[in-house]
Simulated scan of single mutants.
Amino acid sequence: MSLLRTKKFLFGSSFLIILMTLSILNTVLNDGEIRQEPFFYNDDGTINKAPPYPPFDVFPLGSDMYGYDMLHTVVEGAKYSIGIVLVVAFLRMFFSVVLSYFLFRVPESVFKALKTFAEPLSFFPQTLIAYFLLSTVVLYTIHGFHHPLWVRVSYEFIILILIAMPSLNVQLIEQKRRVWKEEFIQSAITLGGSKRHIYFKHILPQLYEEWILMFGQQFLQVLALLVHLGVLHVLFGGTIMGEGPPSSVTHEWSGLIGLNKRFMLTYEWIVYVPIMFFALTAISVAMINKALSDLFKHREMVRNNRDM
């Protein structure tokens, strides 16, 4: 069984790769500019058309209130939206794997205390935690931003990573403790294998497939979290709050949804276009995860048949 022959994997990965490539090329070749048609005039100088333009009129997916092509806007913001989610999901998994390495052999009483602390946090909405921790840093005030862009971005990365660490660590520790109790691990201990040797030679090969699937789950979780924060006007990199409507520092998708939700009942395509791309991205990642899950199950079946 090969991933490259799996329709789910091909569709999901192709969508993400094409979207990211177009987004990066727009920055490299077009300096990040987005097509705009402010007004269309008649021969006598009067205004014939004014934004927002509906889909299939001027642009394929319509324009926003300022005449910017919605499809072009979403493509430009893809590298930020998908890139942010990829980095956060990867760092969540990386730090949790490293930290759980030092914690999975703690005494049972210590592990129960960690679990007692982490389990309530898994039921508390991460959106609320992130909102209260981020809103005072990323929102623009009458005095401007209190912190430079790199500080706001770094702080937001740290918060988005840390809020998932307790429950994710407990989950990884439970997986490692489960494998540690297997007979072949006890045999390796009896033969004198060190903790480091057993961990890297016996435990990791048993769990890395589960971690790959967990990375996809974290990707979807972070994607949903950014949408929720966007609706609350907590945008990645900062939200400019002035006399007019709020605006975003970047064109990332959660900002497009949160800033334009007021047009939901009038110019609905301005909101639905970024929502559609969020949904397509989530579906693509879910399809990749399903293809990987099927592949891992097939490998397990082959291994079991070989051992019989």
Rank of each mutant, 00 (worst) to 15 (best):
I142P: 06
Q218S: 00
L259D: 12
L256F: 08
T136S: 03
T239M: 00
W180P: 09
P148N: 09
L265E: 08
Q218I: 02
S254F: 14
V234C: 00
R177S: 01
Q217Y: 05
N260P: 02
I142A: 10
R178P: 00
A164S: 06
H197E: 11
R262W: 13
H143N: 12
F132L: 13
F215R: 03
V153N: 05
I158P: 13
G230I: 00
Q175S: 05
Q217R: 02
F263G: 09
P148Y: 12
I257W: 13
L235K: 06
L265S: 10
T127M: 01
Y131S: 05
A188N: 08
S154V: 01
V227A: 05
H202R: 07
S247T: 15
G255S: 09
R262I: 15
S254V: 03
V153A: 11
S254N: 09
G238K: 05
Y208P: 01
G238C: 04
V179E: 12
M241F: 12
R262G: 14
R262M: 15
Y208S: 03
L223Y: 05
H197R: 09
G192C: 04
K176M: 13
R196L: 13
F184D: 03
H251E: 13
L265C: 09
E156M: 15
I198D: 10
F219C: 00
G244R: 06
I257N: 15
R196S: 08
K195W: 05
Q175D: 08
H202M: 15
I198T: 06
H143D: 07
I203K: 06
F219W: 14
L149V: 10
I173F: 01
S154E: 09
L162V: 12
I173K: 04
V227Q: 03
E156P: 00
G193R: 05
E268R: 12
S194R: 08
Y155S: 07
I158L: 12
H197F: 08
S194I: 13
L229N: 00
T141L: 03
F132I: 03
P148R: 10
F219N: 04
E268T: 10
F157P: 08
P166Y: 05
T190D: 11
I240T: 11
V222D: 01
